[in-house]
């Protein structure tokens, strides 16, 4: 008991045992995590750099006896119109569903829900967060059912005498973008709501007294105050959307043809449908580099204290 009171009043200087024990006492506790990350996360990333420059295949003669082919995979990639189309589709998908759709709608919801009736907010929040919590494959199934030729959307359109279509076939990109907006808006809404609740009220009141209209208060006061949250959210949802696979794959499979084939789907097709593992790894490397750049920006923007 005595020791406790002495310790409490002691200054912050390190206790004796810190100086006595050796430098490497962190190794024991950190070893399990470090070994797992090294073998199953860092290792595969490093290995990507190697097999992306080989002609490894899933089956056939080069499955086990693959060889180094230099930049051949990358030459093939940049000359392949399907690859270029995939890049464009990935950009459209990311801008449309994440930056414009999720962030835009999330901001609208966060702004409009301020100061509204608590029960109303609770119900609306539950619906929108519900779409986010549901597993991705279920979201894909729900939207597949909704947009199908026999699906609910056509029932509604038919009731109003509007043209019916198999929307997954006629407008695959619009379909997957809508589904991803539905699924991801909650995240942006939650981030923006939290940021907005930190905006000091007296600042907005002062602006109102000075004669600023609601639009001016939003643009001049609110948005600049939460711009850090906006920035981090935009980078985070961009990162998530760039690499999104399940929703598109289960709804359209990248089709019809290659009309909704974003980069992750293209990578999957090449590696696992056409058995070109080396080429698939080269596409994976492109995705990794894009992701790494965005992630670096994220770490920089966040500027957390560690």
């Amino acid at each position: 008991m005595k020791a406790v009171t002495i310790q409490k009043s002691a200054p912050v200087s390190p206790p004796l045992w810190v100086r006595l024990k050796d430098h490497f006492r962190w190794i024991g506790p950190m070893a399990p995590a470090l070994v797992i990350i090294a073998l199953f996360f860092a290792g595969p990333i490093i290995w990507t750099f190697y097999i992306a420059f080989t002609n490894m295949e899933l089956t056939g003669s080069t499955a086990s006896t693959y060889s180094f082919v230099g930049l051949q995979n990358f030459q093939h990639m940049f000359n392949d119109p399907t690859f270029r189309q995939s890049v464009v589709l990935t950009i459209i998908f990311t801008l449309g569903s994440a930056v414009v759709g999720q962030a835009g709608l999330g901001m609208l919801l966060a702004l409009l829900m301020r100061g509204k009736n608590g029960v109303f907010r609770g119900i609306l929040g539950a619906i929108i967060v519900g779409a986010w919590v549901v597993p991705e494959i279920v979201a894909a199934f729900i939207w597949y059912a909704f947009l199908n030729q026999q699906g609910s959307l056509n029932v509604f359109l038919g009731a109003f005498g509007l043209p019916q279509n198999n929307w997954l076939y006629v407008a695959p990109m619009v379909s997957v973008i809508l589904a991803n907006v539905w699924r991801g808006t909650a995240f942006s809404m939650l981030v923006f709501s939290a940021a907005l609740s930190d905006v000091p009220k007296d600042l907005l009141e002062a602006a109102a007294i000075d004669g600023a209209g609601s639009m001016q208060r939003l643009i001049r006061v609110t948005l600049p105050l939460i711009k850090n949250s906006i920035m981090t959210n935009l980078i985070l949802i961009t990162l998530q959307t760039l690499a999104l696979f399940t929703l598109i794959f289960a709804m359209t499979g990248g089709g019809p043809g290659t009309k909704s084939q974003t980069l992750p789907i293209y990578m999957y097709q090449e590696a696992f449908k056409f058995y070109q593992l080396g080429y698939g790894a080269a596409i994976a490397l492109v995705l990794l580099v894009i992701g790494a750049v965005a992630s670096l920006i994220y770490v920089r923007v966040l500027r957390v204290e560690i």
Binding site: P44, I45, L242, P264
Partner: peptide, 10 residues
Amino acid sequence: GLPVTAILVP
């Protein structure tokens, strides 16, 4: 922030 999807091929 790294895309886990991409690592699945390697």
